[in-house]
Simulated scan of single mutants.
Amino acid sequence: MKTIGIIGSGISGLSAAAVLALNGQKVVVFEKNDQLGGRMRQFEANGFTFDMGPSWYWMPDVFERFYKQFGYSGSDFYELKKLDPGFQMITADGETVKIPAGWDELLALFEQIETGAADKLKAFMREAEYKYEVGVKKLIYQPGLSVLELINADTISGVFRLQIFSSFSKHVRRYFKNDTLIALMEFPVLFLGAMPKNTPALYSLMNYAGLKQGTFYPMGGFKKVIDAMVQISREHGVEFNTAEGVDAIKKESNSKISLTTHARSIQLDGLIASADYQHVESKLLQQKDRNYTE
């Protein structure tokens, strides 16, 4: 058994902690805040409760795949409600466009905005669903150690349909001409932290998730998801340390990693830093271990 440290108790840190513990490792989580959850924690004041971060629950099958590893389902922890409308978009000229949960209603909306757009949306979604099946259900579970992971039977046979090297922005404009529809189809990739022109068309899979699968909400707030992951982690022996921020990370000559917090120093066999990359890179790592300059 190895001791693995995890910095941050957001959804990435918690999922990593649970999976590592499931696979027999001793896991210690360090969280600088008093409350677990990272950006998915909650704020309470004057009888009201607010989600601090995410407000849309997309790709429910990804969550279910996670829970299934531990013998659970999401319904064991919270009620998931499909929203209708899923969300609304306010255009540059102030028009409000509500996105319906029903597929037929969505097709009608597209047709109302641009003649022929309903059939174009059907064609767009057929390709997006294929990308979702290959990308979300297979590619994202690769460890990310080599570009060769992208070369398999699915990607080779469907290399043109996956559009890994095509621009998302150009892809959308092959189907739609109306500015409102283009804006609606392009906005999901902003969650990736990139502009549509610089994003591969592969990510039309996010349109499939948001528009075809729909937008959900865990009743009680996103902390319900955090509570579920914390419960699973604790059931497998994960140790949580709140109000204990990390000050420094140092590689030792004995292949150990030395972690210095506000309260102590601890030696670890491995470390996952799920705090903000820029903070870890420029504040916690020693200069010689950094990948980037300021």
Score class of each variant (00 low, 15 high):
143 P>S: 14
111 E>G: 07
128 A>V: 09
141 Y>N: 13
134 V>T: 07
96 T>I: 13
115 T>P: 04
66 F>A: 02
141 Y>M: 08
149 E>H: 10
148 L>N: 12
91 T>F: 03
106 L>S: 04
114 E>D: 08
158 G>C: 07
94 G>D: 13
56 W>Q: 07
109 L>K: 00
62 V>P: 00
83 L>S: 05
101 A>L: 06
62 V>W: 03
150 L>H: 09
68 K>I: 02
136 V>C: 14
98 K>Q: 10
153 A>M: 10
54 P>L: 04
129 E>G: 09
114 E>C: 05
59 M>Y: 07
137 K>P: 01
65 R>H: 08
136 V>A: 15
67 Y>H: 13
77 F>N: 06
65 R>C: 01
78 Y>V: 05
64 E>W: 08
60 P>Q: 03
58 W>S: 14
101 A>G: 02
67 Y>F: 15
96 T>M: 08
160 F>Y: 14
58 W>E: 10
144 G>D: 08
86 G>M: 06
141 Y>H: 15
92 A>D: 11
157 S>R: 14
72 Y>M: 05
94 G>N: 09
54 P>R: 02
124 F>D: 01
84 D>P: 01
71 G>H: 09
81 K>F: 10
66 F>G: 00
144 G>M: 07
161 R>Y: 04
105 E>S: 09
151 I>E: 12
74 G>D: 03
63 F>Y: 15
161 R>M: 10
147 V>I: 14
101 A>R: 00
158 G>I: 05
155 T>H: 11
146 S>L: 12
54 P>A: 13
105 E>R: 05
65 R>K: 14
64 E>Y: 09
132 Y>W: 12
82 K>Y: 03
156 I>L: 15
109 L>P: 01
112 Q>F: 03
151 I>P: 01
115 T>L: 09
92 A>F: 07
134 V>C: 10
57 Y>N: 02
157 S>L: 15
69 Q>V: 02
99 I>L: 12
146 S>M: 11
117 A>Y: 00
114 E>Y: 05
161 R>P: 00
58 W>V: 12
83 L>D: 01
160 F>D: 12
130 Y>I: 14
159 V>C: 11
97 V>D: 02
137 K>W: 10
67 Y>C: 07
82 K>C: 05
112 Q>A: 11
156 I>H: 07
58 W>R: 06
76 D>P: 09
96 T>A: 12
146 S>H: 12
147 V>P: 06
93 D>K: 12
155 T>N: 10
150 L>Y: 11
117 A>C: 06
82 K>S: 04
73 S>M: 09
52 M>H: 03
57 Y>G: 00
85 P>W: 04
109 L>I: 00
76 D>H: 13
105 E>N: 11
66 F>H: 04
85 P>D: 08
68 K>L: 12
98 K>E: 11
155 T>W: 13
52 M>G: 04
107 L>M: 08
104 D>Q: 09
96 T>W: 00
109 L>D: 00
156 I>T: 15
157 S>G: 09
106 L>V: 04
71 G>P: 07
78 Y>I: 03
128 A>Y: 02
130 Y>V: 15
159 V>T: 13
120 K>P: 03
129 E>K: 15
73 S>H: 14
137 K>F: 13
79 E>Y: 11
107 L>E: 03
127 E>D: 15
89 M>S: 06
139 L>W: 06
93 D>C: 06
118 A>T: 01
72 Y>N: 02
82 K>D: 00
116 G>K: 08
125 M>D: 04
125 M>I: 14
153 A>D: 15
117 A>V: 00
140 I>V: 15
152 N>H: 12
155 T>L: 13
135 G>L: 14
